[in-house]
Design a protein around this nucleic acid. Structure first.
Length: 572
RNA sequence: GGCUGGGUAGCUCAGUUGGUUAGAGCACACGACUCAUAAUCGUGGGGUCGGGAGUUCAAAUCUCCCCCCCGCCA
């Protein structure tokens, strides 16, 4: 039994994510976790909310709440929605947890001990009225280059010139609009990534099986221009992890916190510790997933994320781990995704364009979304969501091909042969052919899933569903029952068994429908069909089954038109 | 401006190291079936593989130039 560690990029605490965010990290991670569990592997699947930083503080202020309370509340909201999408995290943690505080401080302490931290004094813009230092993009003013009056502190959107906030003429805070700003000297810690460049490069070069999208981004950051740069890992904020050297104070850094991108990936580890705490486990129980000196040497670690997260996971976080000099588990396979576009444009949080996770669940059950999103995952390039495509896929694949198969088999069986698996006849050549065909298809499906080829796996699964309809059409039990009832009974016995196998194979994609199929077959045996002939005899003659409600309903043209209009983008 | 990825049937996408008439699903047409959610199964039509030039016995696949789209960086 293999041991599989899986983490999904952790969603930012500020607001509800859209379907593009979902399909880029959490959903495919869940698919893989469910598949590996289904195969009998030992899986640890961790996700969390990313809670620190200026945007969280501002969102809390806007909501009129203390930031800690705001984050606690939003964490619950995101946790509920994750449950709604059946995301099967072993733990959904919080980057603001005490576990992460301790661990982040411990990493910083180790890095300092190893001479990889340097202190830098720099001038930053301080807003007296806001009572805070302003990150570059929160300062606006007139561009010294082109005179554009809404240039941001990091760049002028008009002439695209790269700026320093102190270059701006008549600078103002975008938070309050205040012009009561001044430059203040402040001290920050920098992680000396340049000293780790060779180690990082060697590590990345050893990952020959990673997607080009992943390695090309990493190499570009390593080698472009002046190469990998040292990175500030602290900020002048109130909300965050206080800067400490292990459990000791850090002289001169009082009142400062770690930068959100420093502590966020460490939460993968801390989240596993939170899992242990929440389940009454010992430290050894989470350490066996993360410490190669404490049992994690045989763990295979997979990360899932959108392409915008790749630099942090191929360079910054590995720099933290390598720099610590401690035997932490590093990622073995990094699966990155492109973006999902919405109906010819981008999803837009600010303009409310596209479907957000809460809205999606309010109009259709999660399986519908899971199926479409995963079968159209943006793997090789950016992908496109359209309502026409969504309607067509759901209606055809889920309702007509799979749902109708379950319906036609169970209804025929019940009305013609009774409430239990019929006993007559035995499997003949047609059944043997089906079993052989199915076996080959299942192996292809497994290969795609093992390689995390999400779209191809979905296509294989669909083909497996089609096999059932092809068989029924050719075998025609509705004819056989008139002339050779025993043959018809054997056909139906096989078909009912097929439904149970479909439940097992489909569970990673559509867990609720899979559950309904399994329950209708009166079984709870989720054993992966490694031996197909045996799996198709799992429900013996005389075994009771029921006719389930229709697994999926169809999306009407009216609904489609309505939703298209509703999500076109007006949300405040 | 630099870089990644992409531009293949009406739509969403596959096309391994260049090699027989370029594939799948949907949509469309025709046929079969009638157990089933007007579902299913079969057959078929449909593409100068973004444009141009080149290498080769042979290019969607390699080289060069150009044009678009998403994104990242500067």
């Amino acid at each position: 039994m293999a041991r599989i560690l899986i983490t999904s990029a952790i969603p930012y605490i500020n607001g509800i994510k859209h379907l593009g965010n979902l399909v880029g990290s959490q959903l495919p991670a869940d698919l893989f976790a469910r598949y590996k569990r289904g195969r009998g592997d030992e899986v640890m699947f961790i996700c969390a909310t990313d809670e620190h930083g200026t945007p969280a503080e501002l969102a809390a202020a806007k909501a009129g709440k203390p930031v800690a309370a705001y984050c606690a509340e939003m964490h619950e909201v995101q946790a509920e929605i994750a449950k709604g999408f059946r995301l099967s995290f072993d733990h959904f943690g919080r980057s603001s947890s005490q576990r992460n505080h301790k661990l982040t401080q411990a990493f910083a302490g180790k890095l300092a001990e190893n001479g990889l931290i340097r202190e830098v004094s720099e001038k930053m813009i301080y807003s007296i009225d806001d009572g805070r230092f302003l990150p570059d993009r929160y300062v606006e003013g007139t561009c010294p280059n082109c005179g554009y009056d809404s240039a941001r502190g990091d760049q002028c959107d008009n002439c695209t010139k790269q700026l320093d906030p102190t270059d701006l003429i008549n600078p103002r805070s975008t938070i309050s609009g205040s012009t009561n700003l001044e430059e203040r000297e402040t001290k920050h810690l920098y992680l000396m990534q340049r000293s780790l460049k060779d180690k990082l490069e060697a590590w990345i070069d050893s990952k020959t099986d990673w997607p080009v999208l992943t390695t090309s981004i990493a190499k570009k950051w390593l080698n472009d221009g002046d190469g990998l740069q040292d990175r500030g890992i602290t900020r002048d904020l109130h909300w965050g992890i206080p800067v400490k050297k292990g459990d000791q104070p850090w002289p001169g850094m009082e009142g400062k916190v770690f930068y959100v991108w420093f502590d966020a990936p460490i939460e993968y580890i801390a989240g596993t510790a939170e899992w242990a705490d929440a389940n009454g486990k010992a430290d050894a129980d989470w350490e066996r997933w993360w410490r190669t000196d404490k049992g994690a040497a045989d763990v295979t670690y997979y990360q899932f994320m959108g392409k915008d997260n790749v630099p942090f996971h191929t360079l910054s976080f590995p720099a933290t781990i390598l720099g610590s000099g401690e035997p932490w588990k590093m990622v073995d396979y990094l699966k990155s995704f492109n973006y999902l576009n919405y109906d010819g444009g981008q999803f837009s949080t600010s303009r409310g364009r596209g479907v957000f996770m809460d809205q999606a669940l309010s109009i259709l059950p999660s399986d519908y979304w899971r199926w479409w999103l995963l079968s159209h995952a943006p793997e090789s390039s950016d992908a496109e969501f359209t309502w026409e495509n969504f309607q067509a896929s759901v209606n055809k694949d889920l309702a007509d091909v799979l749902g109708n198969f379950v319906s036609r088999v169970t209804k025929f069986a019940k009305s013609k042969l009774g409430d239990v698996v019929p006993a007559g006849g035995d499997y003949g050549p047609e059944e043997a052919a089906l079993i052989a065909d199915l076996g080959a298809r299942i192996r292809a499906y497994e290969a795609c899933m093992d390689a995390i080829e999400v779209r191809k796996a979905a296509a294989e699964l669909r083909a497996i569903w089609v096999i059932g309809n092809e068989y029924l059409q050719a075998a025609a039990p509705w004819s056989a029952i008139k002339t050779d009832p025993a043959r018809a009974e054997a056909m139906i016995r096989l078909s009912l068994n097929l439904i149970r196998v479909y439940a097992i194979l489909s569970r990673p994609f559509i867990p609720d429908a899979a559950q309904a199929m399994m329950e209708a077959m009166g079984s709870s045996d989720w054993t992966w069909p490694g031996d197909v002939p045996e799996a198709l005899r799992a429900l013996p003659p005389g075994h009771a089954f029921t006719v389930p409600e229709n697994l999926f309903r169809k999306i009407t043209d009216e609904e489609r038109a309505d939703w298209q209009l509703r999500f076109a983008g007006k949300r405040d």
